[in-house]
Design a binder for these strands. Structure first.
Lengths: 156, 156
DNA sequence: GAAGATTGACGAATCAATCTTC
DNA sequence: GAAGATTGATTCGTCAATCTTC
């Protein structure tokens, strides 16, 4: 039936809406937790993690790419706040002065170290820990498939 | 091993990050599509859908609940914009004058009718259509489990 | 002139405080 | 006084324009 169907099936619609709802609720919990226990929003934590995983520093462009969505200017302003808070400092690239690096400070590392256990426990507590064994892998696989095909579509 | 583990397993971490990335990319696509083809952001579309599904109207409180996250004040301002655009009008409840209803206008219905095919096709195109048959149901089930248990945790 | 990054101007989100009606 | 909703002040996100360096 339904040759040429363009709209989602009921299953598809449920999957879509469920994903939206899950995302909203979980992100909200994690953000609240970080703010209450460590005084930083989830955005800041993301920056600290990205810098840490890249060895402590990244250029602004790299950082903007690593942080989902975020426009270049938003990234600048976000880093401004972290600099004001003393968690990050800026450095001009020694080879190409157009390039600026965001660099973790000692304080930034300390905050990350303290906040990480809360955040990681939060991910289990509010998200993956609510699944049965093996289901996290399923979810990973589904996301991987979507992301892979999205990427192909982007480069068509 | 790892008695007392608190952090996510690699599978769990991949599931979490993948979900974040998928959400960001898909929402971004759908928003861009609606803006370009119908001149409305995804937020507006959500409001129109919520009102339509509730029979054309909802109180501000109900609407704020239905729209994920959104604080009461944000909901007020969002409806302000839709009212200014002529897609929604406000009505005071006849029983309890504290309660205000957001009501779809004819124009609002018309915009929804035109935009819906684009949006629904977009969900398939950028999200569920990228999965294999049966996988949307899997994804639904995973989300349902998480949402169900999140709910229980909220009321503990 | 183009790449990397920032700024000015404006629209949107949020908190606390407020207004109205119950 | 509490519920429903809005407003004022502030912060945050984004576009276009700008600055600097290549």
């Amino acid at each position: 039936v339904a040759i040429g169907r363009r709209g989602p099936t009921p299953d598809e619609m449920t999957a879509w809406r469920g994903s939206l709802r899950t995302h909203a609720l979980v992100v909200n919990r994690l953000d609240t937790e970080l703010r209450q226990r460590h005084g930083i929003p989830l955005d800041w934590y993301d920056v600290l993690v990205q810098l840490h995983e890249a060895g402590g520093e990244r250029t602004m462009s790299e950082l903007a790419d690593a942080l989902l969505i975020l426009s270049p200017s938003s990234c600048t302003r976000l880093v401004d706040r972290l600099v004001a808070a003393g968690l990050v400092r800026r450095e001009v690239d020694s080879d190409d002065a157009r390039v600026k690096h965001a660099v973790l400070t000692a304080e930034g590392r300390a905050v990350l170290r303290r906040a990480a256990p809360t955040h990681l426990a939060g991910i289990r507590r509010w998200f993956t820990g609510l699944l049965e064994p093996g289901e996290a892998a399923q979810l990973s696989a589904l996301n991987a498939r979507i992301l892979d095909r999205l990427d192909r579509k982007a480069n068509d």
